[in-house]
Each structure stands twice: as structure tokens, then as C-alpha cells.
């Protein structure tokens, strides 16, 4: 009887796995026709002249990443069935790193932007793209599997990522960071649209390539604004410079040690008498390790934080004094 139940269990198990695999096959089959291959400008200096996009309307609107690829007069769009179209950029949003193209086609299979999903770290996902332009005609896209490694904010520490997009992203444990992958999609195993694959960028915290994707929920307002004609093409590929007020440590009464190497630690050399720093009890040899929650790995990172302050804000500094951490809160002066 026991033998029988083991055999039955195995048989049922196999059935279950096969059934689950069928669901995945069906999901992939439904996603593939909604993806397009893009061919445009590039092809020199390690810039790929190809990319990936996905259809979001039945009359041929395609979303992709706003990149050099679209700098060409015409962008060639190849559908899943091999049909070729010329795509025209109808709108972009540099802040969200999205561009919308339009092709003259009808009854296109497409993603419904209103039906997207959200997942957390550890979720199993599939990533689709035409990385390395393996496909060129009616061949399907490359599908990779992986898990969502983290959900994090690309904005968390400015200057750490060389990406125009700032906002929440999914980090994947699949290596999607390849030429041509940008503009591809990430879905759940049952085919629900989650995110758009991002550019090839390095994570400066570890100097490793970053496999990130931007959640559709973050992009939807921009895409919908472009689709409804409320947004115009944006000529600039760069985000506007931030207007900082340019505070320096001295504005708080702190004199740091000389900045000699790239990563000079932010040690306090002296504290100006009767300044905020002296009132708050800062001491020479204190090492500033956090400013407003951000790690201060060097004098330069501290300067970056100070530059972004606005008069009237709070500035919270954590210093290491011997083996203790001490936190003090400054008031950013009204003027320099």
C-alpha cells in the first residue's frame, strides 16, 4: 500500500509539474507577440544599434527606453511575425527614461497597461528581450528566468547610478544587463506584465553590472500622458541640473581635514567657536559617517550632500567618536 502511494505521489507530482510547465508555455506564447525588435542608430563605440520594445495599444503604440537608438531618422520595428514597420517617436519622458513609438499597424496584440502586477524580493519572474539581437525577423525573443533580487530606489543615493531614471526599480538575479535588452519586459510566470528592462549600467557601490527593471506602475502616468497627446517629444536626453544652494562644512562651523585623496574620510579638524557645531558639541577628530541618513564615505560625498540642502532644512549628522556613534541635528542657515 505504501509503495503504491509513493508511486501515485510521484505520478501525481510529475503531472503537477507538467501542468505548471504548460501554464508557463501558454504565458510565454501570449507575451511573445506583444514584443518588437527595434533597429536604429548606434553600432559604434559599444553602443548597440538595436533594442527591444513592447506594444501597448492595438493600433501600434510601442514603449521602449529613451536612448540613442531613437536618434535615427527612422527606427525599424520588426513584429513577432516578421513584418517590418517604420516607427516614429510620438513622445518621450526623459525623467522616466521612456519613449513611445507609433507604427502604422492595426489589431496588434498588446499589453493592457491597466492590468499589471507587483511583486516583492524572491518572486520568480521571466525576462524577455532581444539581447545581442539574436532574433531579427519572426524569431521569438530570448526568455530568461530569475527572481526579483530586491526592490529598491535608484534615487536613494544620487550619483551612484548613471541613469536618467530615478525611482523604484526591481533588481533581478538574472543577467539581463546586455546590449539590446533595454526596453524588454519582465513578467510573472503566468504572463502578467511587471516591468521594463533598463539600460546597461554599473552599480558604483560594488562596481558590478546592475540588472534592473522599471515597474510599469511607475511608468504608466508618463506613457498614458504621451498616448493621450498631453506630452510632447522631449529633445533633451539629459535631466536638468539640480539647483543646489552650495553649502559647505564651514557654514555649520566645521573645519574638515584637508581633502588629499579621493576617499579622504570626513574627519573634523577643528570646530569654529560659537558656531552651531560647537553648540551641538562636535569635537576635533570626530569622523562624520552619516549625513541625513546617507553614508559619508569621503569628504566628497559630504560635499555632495551639503550642496543639495535647502535653507531652513534639518541636517542630521552622525559622527563616530572613539567607539561610539553620536547624532546631532543642525538647522541649515537661511543664507550662506
Amino acid at each position: 500500500m505504501r509503495v503504491f502511494s509513493v508511486v501515485l505521489g510521484l505520478w501525481l507530482g510529475v503531472c503537477g509539474v507538467i501542468r505548471a510547465e504548460e501554464t508557463v508555455h501558454d504565458a510565454i506564447d501570449s507575451v511573445q507577440p506583444k514584443l518588437v525588435k527595434l533597429f536604429g542608430a548606434g553600432g559604434f563605440k559599444n553602443l548597440a544599434g538595436y533594442g527591444t520594445g513592447y506594444l501597448v495599444s492595438s493600433d501600434g503604440h510601442i514603449v521602449t527606453v529613451w536612448s540613442h537608438l531613437l536618434d535615427a531618422d527612422v527606427v525599424t520595428v520588426v513584429l513577432h511575425d516578421g513584418r517590418r514597420f517604420f516607427g516614429k517617436v510620438v513622445g518621450t519622458d526623459a525623467r522616466k527614461d521612456v519613449a513611445v513609438l507609433k507604427i502604422e499597424a492595426e489589431e496588434c496584440p498588446h499589453f493592457d497597461l491597466a492590468k499589471t502586477g507587483q511583486v516583492g524580493p524572491g518572486a520568480s519572474v521571466l525576462a524577455y528581450s532581444n539581447m545581442f539581437k539574436v532574433a531579427s525577423g519572426d524569431e521569438p525573443m530570448t526568455v530568461m528566468h530569475g527572481v526579483v533580487s530586491a526592490k529598491t530606489d535608484l534615487d536613494a543615493r544620487r550619483g551612484r547610478y548613471e541613469v536618467p531614471y530615478t525611482g523604484p526599480v526591481y533588481i533581478l538575479d538574472a543577467v539581463t544587463n546586455n546590449p539590446g535588452a533595454a526596453g524588454g519586459v519582465v513578467t510573472t510566470f503566468d504572463g502578467k506584465l511587471l516591468a521594463m528592462l533598463g539600460r546597461q549600467v554599473k552599480f558604483s557601490g560594488s562596481n558590478t553590472w546592475l540588472n534592473y527593471a522599471m515597474p510599469i506602475d511607475e511608468l504608466r502616468p508618463s506613457i498614458e500622458a504621451i498616448l493621450s497627446g498631453k506630452s510632447r517629444p522631449d529633445d533633451s536626453l539629459t535631466t536638468p541640473e539640480e539647483n543646489g544652494s552650495d553649502f559647505s562644512p564651514l557654514d555649520f562651523g566645521i573645519v574638515l581635514v584637508p581633502d588629499v585623496v579621493r576617499r579622504t574620510p570626513a574627519y573634523v579638524e577643528t570646530v569654529v567657536t560659537d558656531s552651531q557645531a560647537s553648540q551641538l558639541g562636535l569635537e576635533p577628530d570626530d569622523l562624520i559617517v552619516f549625513a541625513n541618513g546617507e553614508l559619508i564615505s569621503s569628504i566628497r560625498t559630504l560635499q555632495d550632500v551639503l550642496k543639495r540642502l535647502t535653507p531652513g532644512d534639518d541636517l542630521q549628522l552622525t559622527v563616530r567618536r572613539g567607539d561610539a556613534l553620536v547624532t546631532v541635528t543642525f538647522r541649515v542657515p537661511r543664507e550662506k
Binding site: G9, C15, G16, P121, G122, D190
Partner: peptide, 29 residues
Amino acid sequence: MTAWLLLASWGVAQPSVVELQQETVQQAV
């Protein structure tokens, strides 16, 4: 897993292997 496989074989909608794996991973984390 055995329980849902049994149920699955009776045609009842159940979490897939992928979902189960995902859930197990997330619980371990």
C-alpha cells in the same frame, strides 16, 4: 506540496510549482 498536487490532479485550482517555490523562498528569506 503533496497535498496540492493531489488536489491539482482532481482539477481544483491550486498554486503552481512556481508559486510554491516562490513562497518557500520568500519564507526562508
